[in-house]
């Protein structure tokens, strides 16, 4: 009899214990939700603050005016044109090189020290602080190659930053393609390059594109390396237009022109003591944020839809 009572006591003790631990479970899931929720709210508040502060400046004139000493009339014309031109250079350098490296590492390289060497370097480059790329560009592009503080230099610098992103994205996209796709192409007599170009790359295109968009979004917001190469913070002129109405219709003089980019313009305005300039900075920040979030959003959406669509 006493034994059974003891048994009852044990059961009760266990019930209490289970209840306590279950409570811990619930408490932690509330903590988790609270942490994530407050982070999300904090960031939302920050971005709203940026948009609200910058709202009075959000008009067409802001995009069509040069920066000026008077905060009211100042705009970001030279900055967004500069950003766009720099990105063109970055795109045309980083994309072919990054995709080619990715293809080489996944499709061509034989396992061994050489492939390992490249792989280790790519992994490390992704972790190098962006300002170090700025120092490399300052020493190499600006002075060693004599390219000066030009759009070309900035474009090359940002392409160094973008390269690891494109390489990694290309490799991941290629790795997901099953071998039988390649084998089918080989079976009808295609060469390795034909297999790669006509089949592997076609299927990998979505993933590669995702990497390119994310890389470009990062390049838009990068500030430190572009400051390091000595980009000017006050530019009140536009580079020569890339497209002309006389033959040969395209000129490359803009590559050598001085420039500024959106994040540098923002940095410059933050550093001024007057509040009016801070409003300009907020508006520029809102433009940058909207651009990068939009691009990243498209890239993430793209990745998820690929993951859903492809069934080998």
């Amino acid at each position: 009899m006493s034994k059974i009572i003891g048994h009852e006591d044990n059961l009760n003790a266990i019930r209490v214990l289970i209840k306590k631990h279950k409570k811990n479970d619930r408490i932690f899931s509330y903590i988790g939700l609270f942490v994530i929720g407050s982070l999300a709210i904090a960031l939302l508040v920050l971005f709203l603050d940026l948009v609200i502060d910058g709202y009075p400046k959000m008009n067409l004139e802001f995009f069509s005016n040069f920066p000026s000493r008077k905060p009211e009339g100042a705009g970001i014309l030279s900055a967004w044109v500069g950003s766009a031109l720099v990105l063109i250079v970055t795109f045309f350098v980083a994309v072919p090189m990054g995709v080619a490296s990715g293809i080489y590492l996944e499709e061509y390289a034989k396992k061994g020290w050489f492939a390992d060497l490249i792989e280790i370097n790519v992994a490390n480059l992704a972790g190098v602080p962006s300002i170090i790329y700025g120092l490399l560009a300052l020493g190499l592009f600006v002075y060693e190659f004599g390219l000066g503080q030009s759009i070309l230099t900035a474009g090359l610098t940002l392409s160094l930053l973008m390269l690891p992103i494109v390489i990694v994205a290309t490799r991941e996209a290629i790795r997901a393609i099953p071998v039988h796709i390649r084998e089918a192409a080989y079976a009808v007599g295609a060469t390795k390059w034909q297999v790669t170009l006509h089949h592997v790359l076609q299927y990998a295109m979505g993933g590669v594109l995702t990497g390119i968009i994310i890389g470009m979004a990062r390049a838009i917001g990068e500030t430190a390396p572009v400051i390091t190469i000595g980009a000017l913070t006050f530019i009140a002129f536009l580079p020569p237009t890339p497209v002309t109405d006389v033959a040969p219709f395209i000129n490359f003089a803009w590559l050598e022109a001085g420039f500024t980019v959106l994040p540098i313009q923002m940095f410059n305005w933050i550093s001024r003591p007057e509040h009016a300039f801070h409003i300009n900075a907020a508006a520029t920040g809102a433009v940058i944020i909207i651009l990068t979030l939009l691009m990243n959003g498209i890239a993430i959406k793209l990745r998820y839809s690929i993951r859903k669509k492809i069934k080998w």
Binding site: R218, G221, A224, I270, G285, I288, I289, T292, L293
Partner: peptide, 8 residues
């Protein structure tokens, strides 16, 4: 993906 200048 948020640029660090904005965080600054």
């Amino acid at each position: 993906g948020v640029p660090t200048v904005v965080f600054g």
